[in-house]
Design a protein around this nucleic acid. Structure first.
Length: 771
DNA sequence: GCCATTTCCCTTTTT
DNA sequence: GGGAAATGGC
């Protein structure tokens, strides 16, 4: 009996097909990690491949760690020299060794999103661009997408043609890259693109790695972007032993540049590829799978497949309609409590949601009812002010050219070096082409800076160089303590924070120090750069400890790749999930991505799936009236239980509507006069149509997703018609140009007097007829 | 240069 | 409702 006998036929095929390109279409819960780990074991033990020649790439450190552990269990530690790591970790490792060949220094810094935004804002300011039109976040997203596609600033400028915005973004993009390079820094995208650049410009480096990695495996292949595809293609070009594993139905990172075509067209790029489908699911019950299948089959852009199991039907899915988010939270937490009372463990349960903001009301109830929990994601630990301050000191010590770090700490704590002085120094640096730190050193030479101010700057420089000297002898942990002492950080915090907040921040710093100590204990060759790199590349979910007996709370995105006996999908409301953005988007594939996210959520559940919605939810301080998520309506009624664990029966149809009508009448925007709302967040409102808990037949799809709107006269339902004057809370007054029925909602086109022509859905637009 | 107040934007998801 | 940037007064 060998370890391969426990695999099913398709899984075995995946394990044994070691030579040539292989596409493994692995549905949720079909045992793909098992195939990958057994494949590595098979290569090492049966094919006598040196582990040194194996590269396995994942997206998260957690997945990499899990794979490493499982491989070690199968073949022992002898596979230690195989690279099993994330895209980013692998690329950083390569770049630390060879990046000098493309003009960076090996001790480059990694910039996070905050640092990126700082650079973008600086560039926008430098070019005197209107930040109302060029929002830093939007510009950054545009640049980031370009990088994912390996588009250079020159490419972008050429493609822009007469498009002024695009031209300007290209200009910012060029400046942004210049600044990154001046700071000897890479952003997340650069980590991939610069590796591609290194490979394409230095053939001997590429050849070295091609030679080395004879067998390459890529997990979650549906989430790769164009740059990552290029990287993998380059590495695999020599031996062509490339095995990619993924599921197009679980592609949920388009917003981050993932290109589903990589998996859909794999056979096009590698015509000799062997394709293996894994459709047997070992995780969930048939009812859960049927629900997942019913939802995902509404997507058009996908490879057809259908999950099945021989585990039996299992419990029906539960669906609860609550009056408010608070009731929903109470319902979920008390249900967990009851379950634990019946012998379940806390860590059998996970609560998933679309947006991080939803964790708040849940958290309150967990605290109130004394149920242990952990929230993953949300405010990043490394995004906290105090952590960023300390890290900026470390970065400045490690890489003198890191200008974002220098600018962050030069006046933290207050040293009397303000923006005016800093601007003067920046200009000097630019004029003399010498870098910010060099300009600081020479600030005595800058005529416009007074003696007194120059002395302060020199004091800073002296302190940093002293710290640099210490860094050579001290551990990272000791160095952080030195810094905190030298700059009297706690006193600085006490100046404007309350004592408890100071204590809180100092606790966070202690945690950072512990992480530094842990890093130094684990790393083969600990270094300051290494620590900063590890810190930059971790995700919150990486720290998940399955053995901790607490309930896990996280976004649907974070939940990918995980499984739990009991899963709660909370906030199943149209406008929340699918998100408002996706619902109103012109691009129908946005809605398909949300549906895939729903599919991911459903398939996390092993035994019990509990979905819920709140008819009223507070979003950004405003109460929103919500209707049931269209995804819930896509699940045939036969899979859904009528009652759920005795918490609450799904509210009868008529009641929902009656209750909603009453509520709506009381809402501020429905009162006759005096709307107090100024923001444009008209997310979800009462006009039009309410789905309640009604469920559609599986064959009946919302017309709106098919994109075949039927024109209809609709004045009665909406209270306005084409040609009428209407008022929108954000866009002001306008004339209705067109109303088109989209099956479940009306799509209204309005020519606004000042805001231009907008297309919107009636139920979200809160349009009011005016005379 | 510093501080308090106002204004803005935000919330879709993250390696 | 909240946090961070911009503004304006000292």
């Amino acid at each position: 009996m060998s370890i391969y006998d426990t695999l099913n036929e398709q899984q075995r095929q995946g394990v044994f097909a070691t030579e040539g390109p292989v596409l493994l279409l692995a549905g949720a819960g079909s045992g793909k990690t098992r195939v990958l780990t057994h494949r590595i074991a098979y290569l090492v033990e049966e094919k006598e491949v040196n582990p040194y020649n194996i590269l396995a790439i994942t997206f998260t450190n957690k997945a990499a760690a899990e794979m490493r552990e499982r491989v070690d269990n199968l073949v022992g530690l002898e596979a230690g020299s195989a690279w099993i790591m994330t895209f980013h970790a692998a690329c950083v490792r390569i770049l630390r060794r060879y990046i000098e060949r493309i003009g960076y220094e090996n001790n480059f810094t990694i910039y996070d999103t905050d640092d990126q935004r700082t650079l973008i804002r600086d560039a926008l300011k430098r070019f005197d661009m209107d930040t109302k039109i060029y929002k830093d976040k939007a510009v950054l997203a545009q640049i980031s997408r370009a990088k994912d596609e390996l588009i250079t600033p020159d490419d972008m400028e050429l493609a822009a043609g007469q498009d002024l915005r695009k031209k300007n973004v290209a200009k910012v993009y060029r400046e942004y890259q210049r600044q990154l390079k001046a700071s000897n820094a890479l952003d997340f995208d650069d980590i991939i693109c610069k590796t591609v650049e290194l490979f394409t410009s230095c053939s001997e480096v590429l050849e070295y790695y091609q030679q080395r990695f004879r067998y390459i495996m890529v997990d979650e292949y549906q989430d790769t972007n164009t740059a990552q595809f290029k990287l993998v293609s380059l590495l695999a070009a020599r031996h062509r032993n490339l095995c990619v594993v993924g599921d197009d139905d679980q592609s949920i990172y388009k917003f981050r540049g993932a290109n589903v075509k990589n998996i859909l067209e794999f056979e096009h790029f590698f015509p000799e590829a062997k394709v293996i489908k894994l459709e047997q699911n070992y995780r969930s019950t048939q009812n859960i799978l049927d629900a997942a299948n019913a939802v995902i089959r509404n997507n058009i852009e996908r490879k057809d497949k259908r999950l099945w199991t021989d585990a039996g039907a299992g419990d029906k899915i539960e669906y609860h309609v609550y009056n408010s988010a608070f009731e929903e939270a109470y319902g979920i937490v008390s249900d967990i409590k009851k379950d634990v009372g019946n012998g379940a463990a806390y860590n059998d349960h996970a609560v998933l949601y679309r947006t991080n903001a939803q964790s708040r009301s849940l958290e309150e109830k967990f605290v109130e009812l004394g149920v242990p929990y952990k929230i993953y994601g949300g405010v990043n630990f490394y995004g906290r002010k105090e952590i960023k301050d300390v890290l900026a000191y470390l970065k400045t010590i490690d890489n003198a050219r890191d200008e974002v770090a220098i600018k962050r700490i030069i006046n933290v704590p207050k040293r009397g070096i303000g923006t005016t002085t800093l601007d003067k120094i920046s200009i000097y640096a630019q004029d003399n082409d010498c870098g910010l730190y060099a300009a600081l050193v020479r600030c005595g030479e800058i005529p416009s800076i007074s003696k007194a101010t120059a002395a302060k700057v020199t004091g800073f420089v002296t302190m940093i160089s002293a710290m640099r000297a210490k860094a050579r002898e001290l551990s990272v942990k000791e160095l952080i303590n030195e810094i905190l002492n030298d700059i009297h950080y706690e006193e600085y915090l006490s100046d404007d924070d309350e004592p408890e907040e100071v204590a809180d921040r100092m606790d966070n710093i202690s945690e950072l120090i512990s992480k530094a100590a842990a890093y130094e204990a684990e790393a083969e060759v600990p270094s300051l750069s290494g620590f900063l790199e590890e810190v930059a590349l971790v995700a919150d979910i990486d720290g998940m400890d399955d053995s901790n007996n607490v309930v896990s709370l996280m976004t649907l995105h974070s939940a990918k790749g995980l499984e739990f006996p009991v899963v709660y999908l909370s906030g199943m409301e149209d406008g929340n999930f699918p998100s408002y953005m996706a619902v109103t988007s012109d691009d129908k594939s946005d809605l398909e991505e949300e549906r895939r996210l729903c599919y991911v959520g459903i398939t996390r559940a092993k035994k019990r799936l509990v979905m819920s919605m709140a008819k009223q939810r507070m979003i950004r301080g405003e109460v929103m009236i919500c209707k049931s998520s269209r995804f819930v309506n896509e699940i045939p009624r036969e899979y859904i239980a009528e009652t759920g664990q005795g918490i609450r029966k799904p509210t009868p149809f008529g009641d929902v509507n009656a209750a909603e009508e009453r509520l709506r009448a009381e809402l501020p925007w429905n009162r006759p006069s005096g709307s107090i709302f100024s923001s444009g967040s008209s997310r979800i409102s009462g006009s039009g149509y309410s789905a309640g808990v009604k469920r559609r037949q599986p064959t009946e799809r919302p017309t709106f997703t098919k994109g075949a709107p039927v024109p209809a006269a609709s004045e009665e339902e909406l209270g306005y018609a084409a040609g009428d004057r209407v008022r929108h809370i954000k866009f002001g007054d306008g004339t209705v140009a067109k109303i088109v029925s989209g099956g479940r909602d009306f799509e209204v086109t309005v020519d606004f007097d000042t805001a231009g022509t907008k297309k919107m859905f009636a139920s979200f637009a809160k349009l009011v007829k005016i005379d």
